[in-house]
Design a binder for these strands. Structure first.
Lengths: 343, 343
DNA sequence: CCTTAGCACTCCTAAGCGCCGAGTGCTAAC
DNA sequence: GTTAGCACTCGGCGCTTAGGAGTGCTAAGG
């Protein structure tokens, strides 16, 4: 069921107009639009067709049309084309990484989410890089005082995790050093995922033969790894949804904001949409999770040295400026990849 | 201008009732309250007096009374007495620190803010411990690879900061070790505040005589200290204000939520209220900052080993259950002090 | 003299009603 | 196939009205 050229033009006009105004679009408005050149009556007939085909919907009998979910989908897939950024947008995005090379990965991520939300005026979210997918580089234990030490764990993609542990008092610095070197040697190059309990147990057994004292350090290593199993999700511009006319009611606002507070859920949502694809657009019920089926989620994966690390996206009402937002997101991811990559 | 016993009882009844219902309180309602035993007509006369004296206000002629800011103040200062916690509240609070001794200070703080907001159903905020007020314990530099190293800075109150720096390639491990030991020796016991640029310059000059290579490391030390000048503010339960009838309008919600996004402002507000006092209650215009003059802010300082580190508080509409919330806050701070203290 | 019952009055709120205008679908003419 | 014309629909807005909660005042009672 292909759409005629004319229907495409009309659908395009309706969607574009509705994105701008957030109001239902009437036949007269479409007739006045550029490149149409038809009377409102003709448009009305075409719009009635488009409604029957499921691309448009009518809030009530005597109102104009708004795009249905299917309408938005068609617009995104076939009609909108590539967006262009303004010079200011370009600037805001490129400025965010000025002098970023020095920074740690989490700061870069946190910064990116801010830029994205302030440029797009939407709520943006980034799944922090997945710690457990990155590879072990080295581990150190710094003695803090007689009883405590600081474990520092560093991965190749730039993660630095630290944790205070209690040290066995019978452990001499030399012995501690020995254990740490042993561990570094054994774990180097493994992804954090691969550092499983069974591997740890094996190492532990191995070491026990020589020194029977590091029990607690191991328990803590294990714990600290488990804790990090789930990546953090960074949010930006959560209050931006308040400016969207779609969220006029306190109830809806509450619903969305509560959603934003559930980090593990956001993580799930982002992870489901993590693919190699350029940019993923999920409109309304295309989203698996119920609570966002009135929203559109646009995501893209970002990479370090061509390995996918996490995804970044924006969430907002199904009525949004897809063309422009996709362009912004694409540009940001490009920049982000370049900033994060070390080679 | 002292209030008669009877007026106090009536004021108490009005405030207590309004806190519960969020509605203006009529004379009949007060007459029915426990321990009053007067007719509504008498109450009406007394309430008219209380209004004239400024303790009560009337939204409009034919409505009941609501407490004015002055009324709340009187209630807090003289009427409410000490609150009691339910067993569940006690449990929630004491559970939050289970097994916390191990954790880093920032995690404990982040946890406390969560508990506070979920127990009180208000928005809670904690000013993270002030890094620059704590004393230098030690600094280490871990080589990461040929070009980069990780600076780890540890303070006595349990802060751990790290930062990746680029290392001068001409620097041998032995030399690096020497520099670090020197710095540790010189800086030990100083508060971070005292590590000023001039001190750093002095040290730098001192070292230059021996090795002229660590320029960049110093720049970075300075930078990383400056960055941390301002403590972080942790927020919890920001969406709780949505459940308050005072924030029915999207406009007000927006106002509050935008406020919550301005971390430096929150910091200022919390810092202004940082005193030795038990608990500080700021009602409405008692707050210096305009944007929260329709709110009440209740704060208390928390300490490590009797030294004030920061403050924790809750913010909400002026109509709130002062008695109970103050009790909860007091209890939480007690717990927090105990968890953080090392002796 | 303080307290209380009674009553007129105020003013907010919600519901009902009619008007207006935007927009539609249909029909008939071009 | 396109378009002008027209009757029709329906939501939104402003107006009016009824109801009710609560007040302040007055006058009677302990």
């Amino acid at each position: 069921m292909k759409l005629s050229e004319r229907k495409k033009r009309i659908l395009h006009a309706v969607v574009a107009n509705h994105i701008q105004t957030a109001e239902p679009v009437g036949s007269r408005t479409v007739a006045r639009a550029d490149g149409i050149g038809l009377s409102s009556a003709t448009i009305r007939n075409e719009m009635a067709d488009l409604e029957e085909m499921g691309y448009l919907a009518q809030p009530h009998t005597s109102a104009g049309r708004i795009p249905s979910q299917k309408g938005y989908r068609y617009y995104v897939d076939y009609l909108m084309g590539d967006g262009r950024l303004t010079v200011e947008d370009e600037l805001s995005i490129s400025r965010f990484l000025s002098d970023e090379k020095m920074r740690e990965i989490e700061q870069i991520i946190a910064n990116a989410v801010k830029v994205l939300s302030s440029v797009t005026n939407q709520t943006s979210l980034i799944m922090g890089p997945q710690f457990q997918k990155s590879t072990f580089q080295q581990m150190r234990i710094l003695p803090l005082d007689e009883k405590r030490g600081l474990v520092v764990l560093i991965t190749h993609s730039g993660f630095i995790k630290n944790k205070v542990i209690e040290l066995d008092q019978n452990l001499s610095p030399a012995e501690l050093h020995q254990v740490v070197s042993y561990l570094n040697q054994k774990l180097y190059g493994l992804t954090i995922d691969q550092v499983t309990t069974s591997l740890i147990n094996e190492l532990k057994r191995d070491l026990f033969r020589r020194l029977e004292i590091l029990e607690q350090a191991f328990v803590l290593l294990e714990e600290s790894l488990r804790e990090e199993r789930q990546a953090r999700v960074f949010l930006g511009g959560t209050t931006n949804i308040l400016t969207q006319p779609e969220f006029r009611s306190v109830k809806k606002i509450h619903q969305m904001l509560s959603l934003f507070e559930r980090e593990s859920l956001l993580f799930e949502i982002l992870e489901q949409n993590l693919t190699e694809d350029d940019v993923v657009v999920r409109i309304g019920t295309e989203n698996e999770h119920e609570d966002i089926q009135e929203c559109t989620l646009i995501t893209a994966a970002y990479k370090i040295n061509r390995r996918i690390l996490g995804s970044v996206g924006i969430i907002g009402p199904t009525r949004m400026d897809y063309q422009w937002i996709i362009a912004v997101l694409r540009r940001l991811v490009e920049q982000l990849n370049r900033t994060l990559s070390t080679d």
